[in-house]
Nucleic acid binder design. Structure first.
Lengths: 350, 350
DNA sequence: CTGTTAGCGCTTTCAA
DNA sequence: TTGAAAGCGCTAACAG
């Protein structure tokens, strides 16, 4: 157990308060004393105990991050952004995974918002909007990522998945494709639904009629992509392009094509979503929609920081109107996905 | 700010001590009182403040995990194991990444071992063994993963990378290959060096003479794998198989082969290490050496737990001899990698 | 079995 | 500019 603030104070012949001021860069200490204290702290290799600090100051210096799974590339990259930005702002990160389990989500969310951390970033999919709203009424600020259902109720960050779907589909249509297949993600996924919505919009806006036969259920897994593509590609009038709701499924499509003796992109164009590592490792590379995951993570931390330490400067604090405004309008940020062109798409040859 | 232990005590008409006992499942409270207190805690939705708890009990309930990068599949999978096991044991995880930067490693290691956590798991590559040893002299127990240099000095977990190299190479040799290329990882990597060592051993033990021309420098990246393979495959007497020190480079090899009009595995067999997601997504699948990453992470936590709460049961605590023994022999655990056979290797055709 | 009480290490008034 | 002292919420003797 290292030296305490009292040891430092004693060694420097000052009070613990003086040391505390120095630790926290607060005024009230002469330059001379400050320097002396700093020197002694260094000499004794003093590290303030974060627990005591937190207990007294009612802050922990930690941010909580709740995600379903650390394996999924989307989440991982968000985590990286969160990590980088929290470090930047001097927070330490506590990571909790829920494995998409409702009970664990509830649990983790409850613990995190009670006392543990100064703020929490959640990717929650099983908690109902009302549950989330209730949690956000507690003292610990929350930012939700990727859950459109609570946008407007709780500070949140989303990707415009409809636009994503439109962009991907339009890319294919403008290349000359008219029969474009779509493979859904897991049942109930808002992202997948929105991407489908964008797919339909793009089709219609180009004068194409969506064909229900070309739409397959999936679950975001490689295997389902493979199976769905097999069905799609065996159709009498098969599609010339397939838009899969994520890259894993897109890989299933590519391999299904190979298995059926079709080649990508000559016979069938494939586009995915996420830009997973594998997309760049294969030949042809997988064309895909990249979501600005890193930026999303960083942005979440920035919003949280503002929620934790509300900037007082903007107006006079007596400006009731602005206070009202900030209370009524919940922060909401929407990011756009970006098309990453590789080799898996080409104009149709028929 | 939720209710405190005093609120509960007041509501239950007991002392704070009684409540504390109940919280910590300690004896000294009648069943009746215990039940009443539990009921009230539930009713008031009481959550003990971890900071105060930690401050008083000198524990935090947190484990620190220091890794270079959350993107690398090896680390991520270790993290998953750590995560699962810490949850199991009731610890919360604090994640710190160092990006392979020596300064950050030093910093994070210092902070973590000062006060933050009850124990720390480190994947440290820039800290010298003596620095690490000094850190481990502090009060907070440390387990080091994947750093053979400190094995014996600090509790550590490793993968037998020499055996890994032997297994991979022997697989190729026994398939009939005699000219086998090797692509190194980044300069100075212990893992890569050990894998190379195993490669040489396997070659020799099968009566094959290692050919320096077939060994290329690399840096674990796809691009270097691609470049190295181009050189290797353009050799007058090119290898019929290539063992890359990781999967990313192995993908470089596969694609270099394609670019040169060679096919995998007919013309060239490829084997990697790590079993990254992409390995299973391509056709042919990449044959690779899988390290038991999840188990490693879980094991690290178990060791840490034992270090934090030393089991007193084994012998009488007066048994000075056993105390000495446990002090002198530092825990050390070695895992073996496993061959994952996919389609990228086949007997040579020439 | 139960209650009282003295801290844990730090922040933060409030006086000096 | 400095210091004394009162907690923050909880644990762990110790006394009853």
């Amino acid at each position: 157990m290292g030296p305490t603030i009292r040891d430092i104070a004693k060694a420097a012949n000052v009070s613990t308060a003086a040391v505390s001021y120095v630790i926290n860069d607060k005024p009230g200490v002469s330059e001379e004393t400050r320097l002396k204290i700093q020197r002694i702290m260094r000499e004794m290799n003093y590290r303030p105990n974060p627990q005591a600090r937190g207990l007294a100051a009612k802050r922990t210096g930690m941010l909580g991050l709740m995600i379903p799974d650390i394996t999924d590339p989307f989440y991982v990259n968000v985590v990286r952004g969160v990590e980088a930005e929290s470090n930047q702002l001097g927070y330490t990160l506590t990571l909790c995974t829920t494995h998409g389990d409702a009970e664990r989500e509830r649990n983790v969310a409850g613990t995190l918002t009670s006392n543990w951390v100064d703020g929490v970033i959640m990717m929650a999919y099983k908690l109902s909007p009302s549950e989330l709203e209730k949690l956000s009424k507690h003292k610990v600020p929350i930012v939700v990522i990727d859950n459109p259902e609570v946008a407007g109720l709780i500070p949140s960050i989303m990707v415009n998945n409809t636009a994503l779907g439109r962009t991907a589909t339009a890319y294919l249509v403008e290349m000359g494709h008219t029969r474009i297949g779509f493979i859904h993600g897991v049942e109930g996924s808002n992202s997948s639904a929105a991407r489908y919505e964008g797919y339909v919009q793009a089709l219609k806006s180009h004068g194409l009629e969506p064909d229900p036969d070309l739409v397959e259920r999936g679950d975001f897994s490689y295997e389902h992509g493979l199976a769905a593509a097999h069905r799609l590609l065996s159709l009498p009038n098969r599609p010339t392009a397939i838009f899969a709701a994520n890259d894993q499924m897109a890989f299933g499509v590519m391999n299904a094509a190979t298995e059926l003796g079709l080649s990508v992109p000559e016979d069938i164009s494939v586009i995915g979503v996420d830009d997973i590592e594998a997309a760049a490792l294969v030949v042809p590379g997988l064309t895909t929609m990249r979501q600005p995951t890193w930026e999303i993570g960083a942005c979440a931390v920035q919003i949280l920081e503002r929620l934790i330490n509300p900037p007082e400067d903007s107006q006079d604090s007596k400006d009731a109107q602005s206070a009202d405004a900030s209370k009524s309008s919940v922060i909401q940020r929407v990011f756009e996905a970006e098309l990453v062109v590789r080799g898996s798409c080409a104009p149709p040859t028929i």
